[in-house]
Design a protein around this nucleic acid. Sequence first.
DNA 1: AGCACGCCGACT
DNA 2: GTCGGCGTGCTC
Length: 813
Amino acid sequence: MLTASVFVNIPVKSIAKAYTYSVPAELSFLEAGWRVFVPFGGRKVEGFILAVADKAETELAGIKLKPIEAAIDEECWFTPAMIKAAKWLADFYLCSLAEMMRLFMPGKSGLKISVQYEAVEEEGGHILLQMPMYRVVYQYLADQGPQGRNAIARALPEVKEELPSILEKLVQYKVLRKEYAAQKRDNARYEKLVVLTCQLTGQIREGYKRKKAQLHLLELLAAAPEQTLAMADLKAAKVSSATVRNLAEAGLAEIRQRRVLRDSYGDVQADRQRVELTEEQAAAVRAMEPALSAHAYQGFLLKGVTGSGKTQVYIEMAERARRLGRQVIVLVPEIALTGQVVTAFKAYFPDDIVVMHSRLSLAERNDAILRVRRGGAGIIIGARSALFTPAEDVGLIIMDEEQDMSYKQDESPRYHARVVAEELAHIHGGLLLLGSATPSLESYHRARQGELTLLTLTKRIGNLPLPLVKCVDMRQELRLGNRHIMSRPLQQLIEQTIAKRQQLIIMLNRRGFSTFVMCRSCGEVIKCKLCGLPLVYHQGVGGRPGRLACHHCDVTEPIPDTCPKCGSRYIKYFGSGTEKLEQELHQVVPSARVIRMDRDTTNTKFAHQEILARFRRQEYDILLGTQMVAKGHDIPNVTAVGIISADSSLNLPDFRAAERCFMLITQTAGRAGRHTEQGRVIIQTYNPEHYAVTCGIVQDYEGFYAQELKLRQQLFYPPYSRLVKLLYQNEDEQAARSGAAQLIAAFQQQFRGDKRQQAIGPSPAVIARLRGIYRFVVLIKTADLPAVQAFLRAQGLHLRTDVAIDIDPITML
DNA sequence: AGCACGCCGACT
DNA sequence: GTCGGCGTGCTC
């Protein structure tokens, strides 16, 4: 008797365990990794087989085993590597295995399960059916066969209102049966093919002498590769479908269907230019090569200044991995940047690329997966979700811009792509290559500790000069009477650049805007008197004025009219976004043609590319936008860059504030003048003397790193600790707060006196109340993450629905 | 998450 | 007396 251990695909913590089912004889081919359809608590759901065993018993602890209903796919879905990775990750992130496993599927579920109602024949005379409404429904189902509720409602509008209760009652009295129907959600596309099924002999030709059209078709087919032509091509060749049908009926040809795999980025074309590697690039490749063929994990950090040719190193390594027959995953931080990388790779691997990201339709994703499975493509390029493509043997995982915060998923399961990539590389015995001009402090620290092998590219290709970066003190600007968002030097730079018919990028860091209150005269940010963290602006409700709140101490105070430090009246909470800036640009430089790129203007799949393409074609002078304008792309005619408020992130209550600010400045500055002329960059700031700004301006990573690291060590932040954020949610404010407080007490009990195990809080979350639910945060800092994970599991926190666990959170509150 | 089972108020 | 409200608990 075969039994299977099955995890049901329901993302609920309380049923996050394996259930045992019996495997019926006709499904004896099932093994670990198959997706199946199983009965579960009175309904039918999707499940994943984790293991199959041959056991004597048909019951388990007195429960009679239910049989697996059916297999969902024609083949096993999860590879052993995928299951292994999902298990490890579920363990690490304290989430359910099903939650992790569904990341490895194109949709959240492989099935669409719908309920249908079926008439039970022998109950046709039931007493309930004497009522007309009941009889009508029963009769309809008896005539039409099983139907869904919506279909019934559409066909019988007269019973619409009562339908739910009618159906329920009829089911209760067993006059109707509930049927769970499962539709596959693969949206496969097929093309029709015509295949010649005989040898075209002279005898046949003779027989078709009088049927000119069919003979013509026969000749075409005989000449075609594999004697096969697509129906669509025949239509173009003016062969009518009647001709094809006649030939098929005569038995000489056959019409077949073949699944078509859509290639969403198939149209991207690129020219290959053989590039001679620089000595540094070649050295990096040489250092990595042995690990690739050794089939053993090794991690590398490639630190290369902007323009030093990291991409070429990626391509060289990918080529080597492919030559060994191993697959490659290339990760970019945002979907918008896939296009850029795809173009670069297409030049070398025109037909070997598949693009994977969450903006693809379900059908496109299915096709992409199938191309990888069938060996049609070996290089997977995409954002985070590309990691979960079912690949047999991943030899190389490249993570470009590894410091980028968008590699962290901010909804459950809250994984970081770097952690997933590293684990996958371990499982496959592959190579992990993290690339960045400005590595995250965590990765750089690990490299210095020897956990990752550090490779550096210090020279820019063609010895291009770094852009000329100038810093504008906005406090000074105000003193000179300029109350615009844009400083005078920036206005000048815009005018000069446009006059030269060159282009600019202007970046506005919206993050942090409108949340803190600052004096525009002296740069003072209003801070909490108790803990010194910036106070956060909260909008007034119902006509009451807004207030400032500290999220650590839970105190609020009114917004002052004047600056507590210098008494200036120019105190302001920042409310300006890209739209407002766009208006101001129109006033200041009326002739400039401005295009905006931010979350609002880039909703569709190709919106980014479209905007960038139009900007590249010089239909606009200025590209104005948020963070995303700072990333990746390389537009020749851009010679100047302006950063409106480079340091607004410095004022966020977040230990990564300085790191964010530094990365932003170096990245954005890197967009200017990558070709002929030296680029010019203007950075507007209220903190010109902050080390994140001073180091950013001269692109001094080492200097920044040293100072920031010192601070992190003092305050016991990553990379010296790891963080775990617990979010307690409850309708009752006291319950939420005391739940969090209890955990802290238990934590302190457990790790009594250990300075390297700290639990801070409870403090109200950034969104302290969401839809009537109060939210409190506990922040754990630990030098021993496994111990904390074990503690949380022992506390049963991973099973609680009112607590969200975030390992390595990106924000603290 | 759903869905059954179960225990109390409004109506035929 | 039944219908049906949604609180509690389980799902191989």
